[in-house]
Design a protein around this nucleic acid. Structure first.
Length: 396
RNA sequence: GGGCGUGUACCGAAGCGGCCAAACGGGGCAGACUGUAAAUCUGCUGGCGAAAGCCUACGGAGGUUCGAAUCCUCCCGCGCCCA
């Protein structure tokens, strides 16, 4: 197998779609480092494992000697990517964008190789902010409305008769124009980015450049097991989650998601994955433990990963208390249980606290409390538990 | 600009004068069962209150009425068609 073919095999792993294989082969055959573009819009303060899938692919390119070109979409973030939306996104202010961008870089740095010859970071306001109206007209003159309406997201909104802001049509153009500016050889993205990425090919072609190869990664399914992982759905694992939280979240994914996670978030060989996800060979619980340790290790190191695994077992299999519990000062020695729950932040209202009590979710000092009028005495540092996850100690 | 629609709780969606804090589904939370999996079953899902009850809420502001999410007026938002 030639070196090019080896690269193709490695790079092709986990890929959902490639436009096109032949072009990638030809680009690799040139023997020079390819410029591999990935755009990220700093629209939220943290990124999650869904982003990690694409970032890991980026890392793979780096490890094979190619150059990662990370585009911080500080300008595109102002419009908002219409992807996955049935309504228009709110426009973010510049400060928020700048803050988000910084944390993005920090987080992406956990996955990417930060060596200067392996990574180039660009902010797209650098060129997008300078475009004149005439430039924009020229850009918009290269694509038809019909082409835009082919995009699934726009088409659905047309069908559902929900609004599409004219500015949203600009988004694919801006992202495509980024590719022209940075002269990308390859652009990475999730399946939801396919349209935007292909637009880059179109615009590059019109600009007289060789078309970028578009490599599309599958979207990671979120914790609920159905919807794609996303911040707004709350079904995500943040790269900034601490080791225990991250591990716990991985343990809570449906078994059916394991193959997907193994494939997209680990570097294990295929046959090893196959034996892990076969319930006849490996108990699903153990397979998930292995998965959790691998993923946590990538972000927090081996020791933290092992500790998280042990802590998890301790806490949920053996029903012990977590090893470190926050302590809340209450300021009173005797307090109504519902008020206490609200005071430590385990319920947002007294009514909610009472409901939880009535449902048997509350224990204080290991005693289940079902009467919302109960007064508890704070002697020492008793443990308050609401449901499985909300646990703290209280003191006066 | 004209015509026709539409706006209900986290989301979708009923309700069209009192029985409405508002059916139903999804989501979420809690309990049972488990491997913090899935599936299943049960309950809860505006605030205050021990409770009775009170308060706030069906896009906004007024009005009619003993009584309005429901009727009227104006305004705002959104969609479709015509221009």
């Amino acid at each position: 197998m030639s070196e090019v073919e080896q690269q193709l095999t490695e790079l092709g792993r986990g890929v959902e779609n490639l436009y096109t294989l032949e072009e990638l082969r030809a680009k690799l055959a040139k023997g020079r480092p390819l410029r591999v573009k990935l755009g990220m819009d700093p629209t939220a303060p943290d990124i999650h494992l869904g982003h990690a899938v694409v970032l890991r692919k980026m890392r793979q390119f780096q490890d094979l000697g190619h150059k990662a070109v990370l585009i911080i979409g500080d300008y595109t973030a102002r419009i908002g990517d219409p992807t996955g939306r049935d309504t228009t996104r709110p426009i973010l202010d510049e400060n928020t964008i700048a803050e988000n961008a910084q944390t993005y870089l920090d987080q992406a740095g956990k996955i990417l190789d930060l060596a200067p010859d392996k990574l180039e970071v660009r902010w797209n306001s650098q060129w997008l902010a300078k475009l004149s109206f005439a430039d924009v007209l020229k850009l918009t003159g290269q694509v038809t409305v019909q082409q835009m309406l082919h995009r699934e997201n726009f088409r659905l909104r047309m069908e559902k008769q929900t609004e599409i802001m004219l500015s949203e049509f600009m988004y694919p153009l801006m992202q495509g124009y980024d590719s022209v500016v940075v002269e990308a050889d390859v652009e990475l993205g999730g399946t939801d980015q396919t349209f935007n990425n292909l637009m880059g090919r179109e615009l590059q072609h019109k600009a007289g450049q060789e078309k970028q190869v578009v490599m599309v990664m599958p979207l990671l399914v979120g914790l609920d097991g159905h919807e794609k992982m996303s911040k707004s759905k709350g079904n995500y694992i943040a790269l900034t989650d601490d080791a225990n939280t991250m591990f716990g979240k991985i343990m809570s994914i449906p078994d059916s998601l394991m193959p997907n996670y193994y494939q997209l978030l680990t570097n294990l060989p295929e046959d090893r994955i196959a034996s892990l996800i076969d319930p006849n060979q490996t108990h699903p619980r153990d397979a998930k433990d292995v998965l959790g340790r691998i993923i946590v290790e990538e972000f927090h190191g081996r020791d933290a990963a092992n500790a998280a695994s042990i802590e998890f077992r301790r806490r949920f299999s053996e029903h012990e208390l977590p090893s470190d519990i926050e302590t809340h000062a209450v300021g009173e020695g005797r307090i109504n249980i519902a008020q206490l729950i609200r005071k430590v932040g385990f319920a947002s209202s007294g009514s909610e606290a009472k409901r939880l009590i009535a449902q048997g979710a509350v224990t204080f000092n290991n005693e289940r409390i079902t009467d919302p009028t109960t007064e508890v005495v704070i002697d020492g540092e008793p443990v308050l538990k609401v449901g499985k996850l909300r646990i703290c100690r209280v003191r006066i």
